[in-house]
Design a binder for these strands. Structure first.
Lengths: 254, 254
DNA sequence: CTTGACCTTGACGCGACGTCAAACTGTTCA
DNA sequence: TGAACAGTTTGACGTCGCGTCAAGGTCAAG
């Protein structure tokens, strides 16, 4: 048999056969005087077994080892490992399909809809309405939500829901307005302190309890974010943060 | 934010961020005077969304298109296609795991065990016992079995089972012996004809009915195989084949 | 003699990055 | 002041299982 016949017999390409030679999975057969590879029945059997095992999902390197210590213990172990790996893949795919189904169930596919429906609704209600800081806040909440797992998303959404009631919404927009007024203000502006306090009062205690605190808390990202705000706005956020962590520690959560 | 901060915030590597720039998925931000990329909140949100969608299984190219015509119809179509693809993957993995489970259920993992248990048992019983032609036949049956689907495997095993009964086995070994005697014989040897007839008589009619026949039958592989036999042995096989196809046509199967 | 089918080796391409190299910037410590 | 170190820049190569093309050599048929 020449390489084309072998390949056709087993149902692979000639390139595949040569590649298996290259990897040492299939031994190089003898050559005819013209340099062509001459295959025998043994090679076809071996190739068919290689394809069979590869079809199960074994990598070609694992295959080489498995065929080397034929019918060894490692082989069984490798197969069991493979099965466990496939099981994990199944779970992962199932999870992806679940998320996909949730996404497809939504009427629109706007950025917000990438999250849990609850969180999406809350974020839509909190839409900036033309306020620059409102846009910033919306982006911040979107990011926080997207970086949370599903649990965290629904949790966040629940805690934010009080802020979507009509009265709270109006109050929130007023806060955005006052923050926008600080867009060109320097650090030390007299409006900073009162504004931070009003904001702290506007945020539900349970939500405040969720801000990361303690010595191990990583707040560097928050600092990085405030770089795109005015000094006064950044100061407000810093003040707000310290107040919230105080509230949070009283609540007892981390 | 610089690239390292952005990457840490969203949980990817800096290489990933730069790769997304390269693909046009994430717009290049402005540069600081020293040439460093300077990211803003928007970029983090966009990156998080990209990761979210990529985590669903969308390719990065699909992602770029999806994010381009944001909330478009194509996007929904792409997601549905993706879901169908994932469903196919699930089925494929399930099938692989089923085959794996069958394999792992076997006590040994010899080459024969790669097939259906029935076929494996039959092939073990037909083991060559030192006969050169017996080895050849065993390899041939192994190959035929491995190249069949599961249905074909169990079908073959059923049809071969009569040949594993004690009397038939002894008769088969006698045939192997007579074939081995032809290892150095020329074409036209007088022992060829009777041997082919005895072999045809030894093979169950239902099995004979399965040999490919008719004008469209591809027998080139058979010719290739006989190259490793002696001329007389090859002649026996050719004779046997014509007799089997005659029997097969009488049986009515193709 | 040409055509066409097959074979040979060698090389590039995919997708989503990881990893290393060489050069730069910026901060910190001796 | 200088050296170390952590971060950044671009660029290039490696991964895996082959597909595909390139540039030739071999062989049988028309």
């Amino acid at each position: 048999m020449r390489i084309g016949e072998l390949a056709a017999l087993v149902g692979v390409s000639t390139r595949t056969v040569r590649y298996y030679h290259h990897l040492g999975i299939l031994p190089e057969p003898e050559r005819l005087p013209n340099g062509y590879r001459e295959y025998r029945l043994r090679d076809a059997v071996r190739l068919a077994r290689v394809r069979h095992l590869a079809g199960l999902g074994l990598s070609l390197e694992e295959l080489r080892d498995a065929l080397a210590d034929e019918r060894g213990v490692d082989f069984r172990e490798a197969l069991q490992e493979l099965d466990a790996d496939l099981a994990r893949q199944q779970e992962a795919i199932a999870a992806r399909r679940a998320r996909l189904a949730a996404l497809l169930a939504q009427p629109d596919l706007s950025p917000e809809s990438m999250m849990s429906p609850d969180a999406a609704a809350v974020l839509r209600d909190l839409g900036g309405d033309g306020s620059a800081f409102g846009t910033f806040d919306h982006e911040l909440l979107t990011l926080a939500t997207m970086l949370s797992d599903e649990q965290g998303q629904t949790g966040l959404a629940e805690l934010m829901r009080p802020m979507t009631e009509p009265g709270a919404l109006a109050a929130g927009r007023e806060l955005y307005r006052r923050l926008d007024e600080l867009a060109d203000a320097e650090a030390g502006d007299e409006r900073v302190g009162p504004l931070a306090e009003d904001m702290a009062a506007h945020i539900p205690d349970e939500l405040a309890a969720m801000v990361p605190s303690g010595p191990g808390a990583d707040l560097s990202w928050m600092e990085a974010m405030t770089e795109e705000l005015s000094p006064a706005q950044a100061e407000v956020l810093r003040l707000l943060f310290t107040e919230l962590t105080e509230i949070g520690s009283k609540e007892g959560a981390g």
